[in-house]
Design a protein around this nucleic acid. Sequence first.
DNA 1: CCGGATCCTAGTCGATACTG
DNA 2: CAGTATCGACTAGGATCCGG
Lengths: 145, 145
Amino acid sequence: MTGLRADNLPSAQESLAQRFQLWTSAEFDLAHCPVRHILDRLGDKWTTLIVIVLALRPHRFSEIRRAIPDISKRMLTQTLRDLERDGLIARRVFPTKPPSVEYRLTAFGESLLEPLATLVVWAEENQSRIAKARAAFDAAELSPG
Amino acid sequence: MTGLRADNLPSAQESLAQRFQLWTSAEFDLAHCPVRHILDRLGDKWTTLIVIVLALRPHRFSEIRRAIPDISKRMLTQTLRDLERDGLIARRVFPTKPPSVEYRLTAFGESLLEPLATLVVWAEENQSRIAKARAAFDAAELSPG
DNA sequence: CCGGATCCTAGTCGATACTG
DNA sequence: CAGTATCGACTAGGATCCGG
């Protein structure tokens, strides 16, 4: 407790730091932590977007492409398969002609929505602040040369 | 409202879907959305880990390296600079000899902790479930093939 | 001790063409 | 419509050497 920097932190944040503490303790191998794999996956270029699109309602393959215009078929296929593999989305084929395939979040996938929304909301609320910080930083780098 | 798939969603999740709905509306350009840049940054290989380490207390450069054994100097330097540029961490140089440099979260950086923790906790709680889903999926791929 | 500069490899992703 | 296969560009990131 005393080892933590709790000077100006509300107590909620302090317990949060303790939570991370467990996480970084020696018995926990940060280098090979399975949580890292999950975060890597979530952090990849398309996963989050696709999950958000499917959060609205089930979509067909082409619908997702239209919703995310700059994704290629290749990446869409691949990311959908990864998400299916992880049990976050379900794939359902209708034997129509031409065939159609529907993707939807599983209940498990829906459980990810709330944590994800927390982060997205933070990003939304702070994007201008980050943009300003970047501009200020870049400007400061040039003047004192 | 009726367009949403609210069949088996608790109402909290429903409003969450509506939140995403705004986000994906036509006026909002998903392809060039600034939020994507932020999530990309957060999702990169090292950012999250470094933020978590600094959440515990300020660290010196070498301390962070020890906390995250498999990061290279190159990537640590680069990621720290990016985080500083975004205003999430502060860099302080002590003119000792040899010099030492301390990194700590800014107040802004601390505001990221809670959303981040939400996601990390989810990942922690569900890692075994994902591992099982992957194993099942991979097994199913081989047998009917 | 901190970290910049350079070189180089390995994985990632987009474009294109093709299948069922 | 919903993919698969192949190729080539791009880049993240590790190794190494060097400077303050």
